[in-house]
Nucleic acid binder design. Structure first.
Lengths: 205, 205
DNA sequence: ACCAATATACGAGCGCGCTCATTTTATCCC
DNA sequence: GGGATAAAATGAGCGCGCTCGTATATTGGT
């Protein structure tokens, strides 16, 4: 067994497909890794040759959704959009793609909230990286130069807050979440605009 | 055994003391509930008569720290402080009190990030409630009226982001975290100031 | 064809957080 | 004191995520 990369990829796809279906049917907690393995027709231990943890599976599904959202957004036709409008459209596209995972996202936030303690090739971290990549490109396209590390940190915190809120949002069409997105992005872009001129004063603890 | 409330309280205190010590010594994950029960000299099952989950224990420790920080802050003498300076002082006091739990806070964020899905008397949620209570009182004291639900939501998201960052902060004296607090609060207060006048326009998805 | 060499699949088993039927202990009433 | 009663403690046991020693399949070299 040295180069059967095609079979490996197929198994990986079967796992993701089975997991996605089971999570949607019965929830993240209620779905056991043994369930997923059985549905993918592999042994329970084999699952962990493909994904290090159960969270990594949903993390992989999520970052696939984020990449799909990036593609959706790229092929959207827009005319003279402001930065915050582009951001809103991208986030909204993300929410549409993440909808099947909505209830299960909090399980990812614990690990993917912190920007430091992640292994380079971490499945769950790539959700953050993929999303922030697009946001960075958007900022540059709107002539704002590169976003600082602290700006990206603040943006990601707000985005994570939106996802956590969304997971529990009980308003009929999740319109409360969209309102929160609007406020979050308004706050962020307003702050960004203020940042360029002033340099913040020192502050003692 | 009908009214021995004093004994119950003493056992509860022994659990918290043992858990705090063990978490500090060997970390949250590495400490088992059986360890804690043994250190508190109770059976493994008895632990769960006092705390519903392992997270609830660290949640209780954390909300005690937040309350202590509120007391620290209240007895601080300050002269003509601005709103954001008061906020910074309160948050800094919180970080000081939470320091022994720093590394273990992410385990709480998953549950306490979302403002909706919490049982009324949830141990972990009281961390959020206690903190936001003080922030609300501060806002009123500075003549800003009551903070809106969305303002509190945004504030809490930023605070959770700070805690998540702090847990992984490897800068020598965690000065990176203090800088992040400064930026977060600056962004929040700036947004609040902008909120009072304008009414935000509608936005379609 | 055969034999290493090795990548992959396997599943019994571990230790975990947590549950629950049972036992123990404290209290009240006479 | 001595049941009756109920609160609290107990620890065997459950199902979980995950590990790891073993078995099996696939390749390259001759």
């Amino acid at each position: 067994m040295r180069v059967n990369a095609e079979t490996k990829a197929a198994t990986r796809r079967r796992i993701l497909e089975a997991a996605g279906r089971l999570f949607a049917e019965q929830g993240f907690e209620a779905t056991t890794t043994r369930d997923i393995a059985a549905a993918a027709e592999i042994a329970s231990g084999t699952l962990f040759n493909y994904f290090a943890t159960k969270e990594a599976i949903v993390g992989c599904l999520a970052s696939a959704a984020v990449e799909a959202a990036g593609a959706d957004f790229a092929r959207q036709t827009r005319e003279t959009p402001a930065f915050d409008e582009d951001l809103f459209a991208y986030v909204a596209a993300g929410l549409r793609r993440l909808k099947p995972l909505r209830k299960h996202l909090p399980s990812l936030l614990q690990t993917s909230l912190s920007p430091l303690a992640d292994a380079p090739a971490d499945e769950a971290a790539s959700l953050r990286i993929a999303h922030l990549e697009t946001v960075s490109r958007l900022a540059e396209r709107h002539g704002r130069g590169e976003l600082s590390a602290v700006a990206l940190q603040l943006y990601w915190t707000l985005y994570a807050g939106v996802l956590a809120f969304w997971a529990a949002d009980r308003s009929p069409k999740q319109e409360d979440t969209l309102a929160l997105v609007d406020h979050s992005l308004g706050m962020f872009v307003g702050w960004l605009d203020g940042q360029t001129s002033e340099s913040p004063p020192e502050r003692k603890q």
